[in-house]
Simulated assay, not measured.
Amino acid sequence: MELKEIVSSLLANPLVQDKLLIERAYVHSGSSAFVDPAHLMLRETDTKFEIRNGDDCAAIPNGDGTYTLFAAEGLIQNFVRNSPWFAGYSSIMVNISDICSMGGLPVAITNVLWSKDKEASEEIWKGMVRASADYDVPIVGGHTCYGNDLNLAVSIIGKAKKLLTSFDAKAGDNLLMAIDLDGAYFENYPFWNASTTSSPKKLQRNMRFMHEIAEAELSCAAKDISMGGIVGTLGMLLRTSEKGAIVDLDQIPIPENIDLLKWLISFPSYGYLLTANETDTVTIIEKFKSGGITCAVIGEINESRKIALKKNNETEILN
């Protein structure tokens, strides 16, 4: 496809549009919330802690320089209805990715499951239990509601010392993409599954990479690639960081024989965008490589507040 066709197709995709127009989500919630230290049983300060909206998790200060990370994900109803086992598995996996994207390590998971009866929810539970075991993150509670349909939402807590945020991308930094290419598309969904076919040892080892990058201060801004794919996720990162970027489509890691346009809107089981300076970029790429994860520089952060896509030396503005 020509670059103009790619841009037009991306802009017409509702998942990408939803992320590029993420500003709508802040109309009712605001851009931040404040937590009283007394609610956290911290009494040494009267200053309320600001929790910025826009990260993959809420980063709640513990008062000792560490953070409790808190996130939740709801699953698309048709996905739960049509693929209950994989939806259950994915509900655990995507929440873990949110924790990892901020430099954290997952601690525990809870869930809310709506079901017609026990039989209808059995496959969902099997998928959740399998993922919990594969990633070694326990399910510690939840709530089951009986109704007329299947629905699933999962929440997670994690811990972090140093954060990778959505607010700290810097102009001049490299934009990196890290992804596990050793997978395949799940049925007809734009979901690249490199998880259920991986060993628990690999999943648990690679789950720590973003934490180690944060601890070593190799990067300060990151986001997991989610619904809306690479472009939609980048749009959210740039919105909160108040920056722009140019992305070289020819440099994006992509499996063999996979359509580029589909890849740009795909949701991988293991995929992150990060920013880093030139020196730290080399270290980050080598770290991911040690776990069989492909990582490459795909662009550069700038001050434009726009996303520009480049291909074959042609450039088009996306938004």
Score class of each variant (00 low, 15 high):
L163P: 00
P255S: 03
A222R: 03
D280V: 01
V16L: 00
E23G: 15
N206F: 14
E300C: 06
T197P: 03
G232H: 00
K201D: 13
R208D: 08
D98V: 09
L261N: 15
N82W: 06
T165V: 00
K311H: 11
S269W: 10
I317M: 09
A25L: 14
L318Q: 10
F86K: 01
T315L: 15
P37K: 02
M102E: 12
D64K: 06
G141M: 10
L42S: 04
A33Q: 12
S166Y: 11
T281S: 00
N53E: 08
V107P: 00
G54L: 02
E286G: 04
I258P: 06
I252V: 15
N78M: 12
K4N: 13
G103D: 00
G291A: 14
D224F: 10
P200H: 02
D98Q: 14
I99N: 02
G74Q: 08
K118G: 09
I156N: 08
P138S: 05
Q77Y: 06
T275F: 02
A58V: 08
A216W: 11
A71S: 13
N148C: 05
T196R: 09
D248M: 03
S199K: 05
P253M: 02
T279D: 10
K19M: 06
K118C: 09
D224L: 10
L15F: 11
A133R: 15
G30Q: 04
A194N: 09
T197F: 09
T233P: 00
R305Y: 11
G228Y: 01
V112I: 11
N95A: 03
S32I: 10
L264I: 05
A38E: 05
Y135H: 14
E300K: 14
M227D: 12
I284F: 03
S8L: 13
I230A: 08
N95V: 02
K170S: 10
K126W: 05
E123I: 07
S29I: 13
G183P: 10
A171T: 14
E286H: 11
M210Q: 13
G127M: 01
G74W: 03
Y26F: 10
S304Q: 08
N313K: 04
M128A: 08
L218C: 05
K243Q: 12
I301A: 00
Q17T: 10
I139L: 14
F186W: 15
L113W: 03
F79V: 15
E187K: 14
P14T: 00
N148H: 06
I157L: 05
F186V: 05
G292Y: 01
P106Y: 01
L237P: 04
S31E: 13
E278T: 03
I285Y: 02
